[in-house]
Nucleic acid binder design. Sequence first.
DNA 1: GAAATATTTGACAGCGCTTTCATGGAATCG
DNA 2: CGATTCCATGAAAGCGCTGTCAAATATTTC
Lengths: 348, 348
Amino acid sequence: MGDRAIAGAARSVATIRDIAQKAGVSPSTVSRVLSGTIPVAPSKRLAVMAAVQTLHYRPNLVAQGLARGRSRAIGVLTQGISDLFYSQILGGIEHALRGTGYYAVFLSEGSPDDSAWALDLFLSYPVDALAIVGGWTPEEELARVAERIPVVAIGRTIAGIEERCVQVANEEGAYSATRYLIELGHSRIAHVTGLSWHRDSIDRQKGYERALTDEGIGVDPRLIVVGDFEHESGVAAIDALLDKRVDFTAIFASNDQMACGAGLALLRRKLWVPGDISLVGFDDDPTSAYTWPPLTTVRQPAAEMGGAAIQALLDDLNGRPFSLQRFRTELVIRESAGPRARRRAALR
Amino acid sequence: MGDRAIAGAARSVATIRDIAQKAGVSPSTVSRVLSGTIPVAPSKRLAVMAAVQTLHYRPNLVAQGLARGRSRAIGVLTQGISDLFYSQILGGIEHALRGTGYYAVFLSEGSPDDSAWALDLFLSYPVDALAIVGGWTPEEELARVAERIPVVAIGRTIAGIEERCVQVANEEGAYSATRYLIELGHSRIAHVTGLSWHRDSIDRQKGYERALTDEGIGVDPRLIVVGDFEHESGVAAIDALLDKRVDFTAIFASNDQMACGAGLALLRRKLWVPGDISLVGFDDDPTSAYTWPPLTTVRQPAAEMGGAAIQALLDDLNGRPFSLQRFRTELVIRESAGPRARRRAALR
DNA sequence: GAAATATTTGACAGCGCTTTCATGGAATCG
DNA sequence: CGATTCCATGAAAGCGCTGTCAAATATTTC
């Protein structure tokens, strides 16, 4: 069984020489027919194509890569392949690559400690370009890689190569979400942040604060709780607020997962969304349209962002100018936010 | 810019010859030091290792693969990289591969029509083994691939290589979920199925029906609605049931996403979970612990399944016997199911 | 129709690495 | 101490493919 495996993987499959022999031409000619770069006499072309058919020949991508000096592989270094938000970006990347002749090699960092191993593998693997999707790999390392091969980043801004990072209107999104809550009559709006060092989180908080200031409400630091983008931190944040009897009628969370957690914490205290407390998230995860009730959130076009990043990378790879648009965000109004309740929610 | 890209990707990086030269030995010796298979004089070993350090040398994985005849790549053919459930399996695969010297190349089928292209790429890419995660690629094709290289399947059972497919106790899981609802006093239990041809869906329905029969309740076909595993079909299923005024006090959905949709449909009709209607799902998606209220569901250990599949594949690849356990499922009792309401829910 | 030019084609040298194979020196033996 | 064994080492041959180069063939031109 093991034998079959090893033998099977490597051999027992037609090579370019088999085709050449069967078609009565040289390997070079076969190569030319297949790549289509250089004209070949029709009769030989047909013979080669017939041989390819009968022998089920497929050129070995690895050998091609080695000979050509470019592997046609795009490395995708991602924070977590099973993350709700990142996996949408990955989907966009995958989709954008389809039919281009390039393929993606995904590697996820798993955890901050393991992040080194993934990049390490990419240094061994001759990828033509690298797409960074979130993650904890130190910026300097990434910037160094960017000196060798084209790099693009999504969900993260890397110092030194900012122009190669997909920018999202995070602040504007947070601003419009907060403003929307204000317009609904809320003035005590809690904010659950993401990881405190994370650029997106910082920008979203900035938008939240700016909206408050613009409306003359002012920022109350007691309403701001630090989270980590995970569900559980949303629960913890609201629990903390409620335990400290901080007064609020609405919540703006820095992502949908925390908003979801926040909603659960509210439910546990018999506080209804949106009747007692309004709730707005960020990202528009695919599940957010199906929470009970559906979550009002700020949409980030994750898949499109992945696609655009890949497009820019391919342009660069083909000598065209690298260019990346800035993505706007959009407030998706669903049912988790409503007018401020007449009576202030009875706490606990 | 394009130039830098192409040149950078392929060259400007140390090769085994650079190391050999710097260390004053032959490339063969460098290779031996690095692979550690054959003893090398300590002095030369040190010299090589020093050169590797200073030149930041990393062996080219692709060249290694070509020379060795095995690429150390595991192809992962997946239905959808951004799917909530599948991406967990992918995470498990990734994790299991870490540190083994093998790496994964993920390719998703995207849609039924595009499924061919992905497998196609894997035929060109000399993967040592293939893991199938769901998907629509025809079974015969996969069975054919399995004749050449080790294959394992997760989330899908492929005729001809059943012993290489991760089996999950779907029927038992559905049975215990249904039974749990019965024990709570429910007898009118609706069931939202998955795709009607899908093995998992069929098995789960079987478990549902068996529980009903065992308890002498009997199966009412009007209570069974066909879904497609997507959120929206859960909404549609419950809407249909309610519109037809079918009488029920509990729902067992074939996966969490549909359960989520079902919950939303109930909410829209002012039916409370679990007060009016109890709801149980299947899979235990990461989000299911944070629905409002948290969803009672049947847990499928997605990540472990991915890990075990990879382990079996690696065993096979290394000449050890291929063996795959059958995975049990576990009823995770949360808060979406409760005792049957005294008064039958007022429909509409 | 011969000379000059254009075009197709095969041989061959790699891409970066591994892995025989043969060699020479050291270690071992009688 | 000479003959034998052993083992570390380098040279060389590939892995499957591409791309250059020069030979061979076809085409054009006067």
